[in-house]
Amino acid sequence: MSDAAVPRRFTLDSFVEATVERELREGLFELESERILDINLDGEVWIKTGAMIAYTGAVKFVREKLLDQGIGNLLKKAVTGDGARLTKATGQGSVFCADIGKKITILQLQGESIFVNGNDLLAFETSLQYDIKMMKKVGAMLAGGLFNVRLEGHGLVAVTSHYDPLTLPVVPGQPITTDPNATVMWSGTLSPSLKTDLQLKTFLGRGSGESVQMQFEGDGFVVVQPFEEVILQAGTAS
């Protein structure tokens, strides 16, 4: 086939034009696509360890030390593994982040607090206070290593989900129950409890797969995704 017969949309120039980085100038966080976050770095920001796919400029990456957030988080990090590990990006440039092709949502916290599933937290400003929280029941670990990160203050946060997330309002007297592996985020006003139905058939592979659920009661919201994401625990091979 001659070059003249090739439709322009198939040419290399057309591909580059369609996929080249866009200068949106929307602030610190902007979306290059639904699945690629562009951080216009001029200072420092926290990102999920392993989320950086490319960067430009003078940027240094320093992985968070186990004791950076105190003795309490040392044990939490040892149990949760890499899912809640953070890296601080410092300098000036553009840092591109992604997480296995998941959809990215950018949120601006204005004094509110939220809880994010540790596996769904992609990046956030250092102006936000954060703490790793774990569900107290041992049964939670059977849900794939259930833990979450509490964020509070003023700043941007990028959260990921498989496909489009769904937000469910939680009102007093009308509890909502979710699959932990499909739960992405919930408002800081809620403290979910765990419901367990651990029967022998569950361990024999004959259960419904929903042996552990999270129940939300009160006034707030919970966000779920149309995908059950199994989170690897520390010491589990990927």
Rank of each mutant, 00 (worst) to 15 (best):
P7A: 14
V20D: 10
L31W: 07
R35T: 12
E30W: 01
L28F: 05
A18R: 14
L28N: 01
T11N: 00
S14C: 03
F29Q: 03
V45I: 13
D3G: 09
E21Y: 10
E23L: 04
E34I: 02
L24Y: 04
E34Y: 02
D3M: 13
K48F: 03
D3W: 11
R22P: 04
V45Q: 08
L37D: 04
D42C: 07
D13G: 13
E30C: 09
G27N: 06
A18S: 13
E23M: 03
R8P: 00
E17R: 15
G43L: 04
V6W: 02
S33C: 05
R35S: 09
L24P: 01
F10H: 14
E32L: 10
E44K: 12
F10S: 02
V6N: 04
N40R: 15
F29E: 01
L31K: 14
R22T: 12
D13M: 06
D3V: 12
L31M: 08
T19D: 07
E44F: 06
E34T: 08
L37V: 07
V20N: 11
E23N: 07
D42F: 07
R25A: 11
D13V: 05
A5S: 15
V16G: 00
N40D: 12
V6K: 14
P7I: 10
E17H: 05
R25M: 04
V16A: 02
L37C: 08
I36T: 06
R25T: 03
L12T: 12
R8V: 13
V20G: 05
R25I: 01
L37Y: 07
E32K: 08
V45N: 09
G27C: 07
I47S: 06
G50R: 13
F15A: 01
L41I: 06
E34H: 11
V16Q: 01
D13H: 10
P7C: 14
D3E: 13
V16N: 00
L24D: 03
M1L: 15
V16L: 10
R8Y: 03
V16W: 00
W46R: 10
S2I: 09
E23G: 02
E30K: 09
T11M: 00
P7N: 13
P7V: 10
R35V: 07
F15G: 00
E30G: 08
G27W: 06
D13T: 13
E32R: 09
E21M: 07
